[in-house]
Design a protein around this nucleic acid. Structure first.
Lengths: 339, 339
DNA sequence: CTGAAAGCGCTTACAG
DNA sequence: CTGAAAGCGCTTACAG
């Protein structure tokens, strides 16, 4: 086990100063062709690589960004990471991934931990608990220190920063309208509790579509789910106690669960009931029937977020651009769960 | 935008030396109760946090580990990251995620990039291309520099290091035996090309089970898939051109695709054909029928790998433990795709 | 009890 | 053309 070679080693070995070695390796014109070549050859031979940490300290930037997400197991978030990774890599940045596990405290801890030199900026989607508490001081603090933050998907309007979202309201409106156009009048909604921002927007879009078409809004057909673990019973109750001919679900887990439970109750999809989900994930694609869904291009969102963050990091201090909110387009992917 | 406060600022403000501030904050007994309190109060007021990079440089360790995986979109790998994250966090480590995209070059680049001080150790699963080329010099190099590496899932025996695996051979054997016990005699195998280590082991397990039970090995029933993108046609051909009553697939994508295609061809699962998959992912759980599968606990694998890595990092230099290979147990999760 | 010095590994303005 | 010095932000052995 040989220690990593440093400028110091090379300098000693070649009997020159550390400065000379450093300059030679950076092809400084200050150095004679001769020494430069000698140093470079030696460095190559011993496979010298500059120490990233020392560079970070010197340059006051780490070329590392952090993405904080609530959960990595959700396909959508994995997809976003992938988008972030690829853009980051292109620009020579590394990506630290932090999971908040939907916990406010973990989110705060992660940010505080990393905001001290380890990284240059954050990309984040708020944890459920944070959205519930509406406490964003940890984010404000980081921004005040001059560290850029880009929020995506689960964002808040209370923080001024770059954002990447989809138009949840519009996408939900369109999905609902699609069902209405098919002639369905009794459309159930399976959504999240209101404090989850995207859930709320999608609920609003659904309601707007019904209203626009002069359809009755039946509160019994609107199921708001709190717990993402044990929601099967709620959906089962919805199915048993109500009559309706279509469902709009705000994520694919709700959609597939509804389809499975319906089938157990003897209702066939799409023959007896049409279903539209949200998030074009792996479940929608591979379940039987495959699920018509609002695509939510996570790769694109991640790529966009990374690009915005890095551009801000590399912009000149004074050209301070205004904060932007990018809206990623969505589309309805038609599959087997609707006619 | 206020700059981050440093020891220097505090020292200047309080008119003491930097050393005194540093020692006060670390509760050194060298410092008088008085100054200590004064400094601590001031630091708290100005929300002083030590600069991680400076600490890393000083301590020659970054408290950051890197996990390199071929693909994050695969549920299994997302699951492993989750396991790694949680253990790492517990021990105060951050996690950098790198994607090799199944490319040898990206794997090498990522490792070289990070092996220079940025991280303390690697957790990795080999890219397909690396397994194909059998070129592991980048890993050897890192290990020779004294940086610990833990390999998981897609490993190689040519490298000596800690490893976390499942017994792929045994798991495949058991899955096949399960089908045989159900009375099936013609069992097809959908697997990967041989250079993917885990695919090969699973293929071997399947063959061993057939042999052990004196069943004929029909090469026509063994489909080895190279490309993970366009394999539908191959599976369709397998289904059309052969007679068999069960399938063992080495991952859930192959399993669900086989089921979908079979259903299109008028074969019902499990009535006409039983199917067992591998990797207890989200597809197996939510497809219809849900898929009987070999569970492969990614969270556990990730957690174990992280623990092994961190323990090695924090062990005393001289207590140099021998390299270990941990085998994570698997089990057969029985669901709807088998009788 | 306090502080100057050296050092982690690097870069760069400046002197010679 | 080369090198000593200062500095990024911290810690710690040592002197006073």
């Amino acid at each position: 086990m040989k220690r990593k070679v440093t400028l110091k080693h090379i300098a000693k070995e070649l009997d020159v100063s550390i400065s000379t070695v450093s300059k030679s390796l950076r092809d400084s014109s200050e150095i004679s062709e001769d020494t430069r070549q000698k140093v470079q050859a030696f460095a190559k031979l011993y496979n010298y690589k500059p120490n990233n940490i020392a560079l970070s300290l010197k340059n006051r930037k780490s070329k590392t960004i952090c993405i904080i997400i609530p959960e990595i197991i959700h396909h959508f978030f994995a997809t976003v990471i992938s988008g972030v990774e690829h853009v980051a890599n292109e620009y020579g940045y590394n990506v630290i991934v932090c999971l908040s596990d939907e916990s406010f405290d973990k989110e705060v801890l992660n940010m505080e931990m990393l905001a001290n030199g380890s990284i240059d900026g954050f990309i984040m989607s708020l944890s459920k608990e944070t959205q519930q508490k509406k406490d964003f001081h940890h984010i404000t603090e980081v921004i005040n220190q001059g560290m850029p933050v880009v929020m995506f998907d689960r964002i808040t309007n209370e923080i001024l920063c770059d954002k990447v979202i989809i138009d949840d309201n519009l996408a939900a409106f369109n999905a609902t309208q699609y069902l209405i156009d098919k002639g369905f009048k009794k459309i159930a909604l399976i959504t999240t509790v209101d404090y989850v921002s995207v859930g709320k927007y999608r609920t609003d879009g659904y309601i707007k579509a019904l209203k626009t078409n002069d359809l009755n809004i039946d509160e019994n057909l609107i199921l708001k789910i709190e717990d993402t673990e044990n929601f099967e019973d709620s959906i089962q109750n919805l199915l048993i106690n109500n009559e309706f001919d279509a469902i709009f679900a705000v994520n694919e887990l709700f959609a597939v669960t509804a389809i499975k439970l319906a089938s157990k109750l003897g209702k066939k999809v799409p023959e007896d009931m049409s279903v539209i989900g949200f998030t074009d994930g792996i479940i929608s694609k591979f379940s039987s029937p495959s699920i018509t869904t609002v695509s939510q291009n996570g790769i694109k969102m991640g790529a966009k977020a990374a690009k915005m963050l890095i551009e801000r990091l590399e912009a000149d201090e004074d050209e301070e651009e205004r904060y932007k909110t990018e809206v990623i387009e969505t589309e309805l992917v038609e599959r087997e769960s609707t006619f």
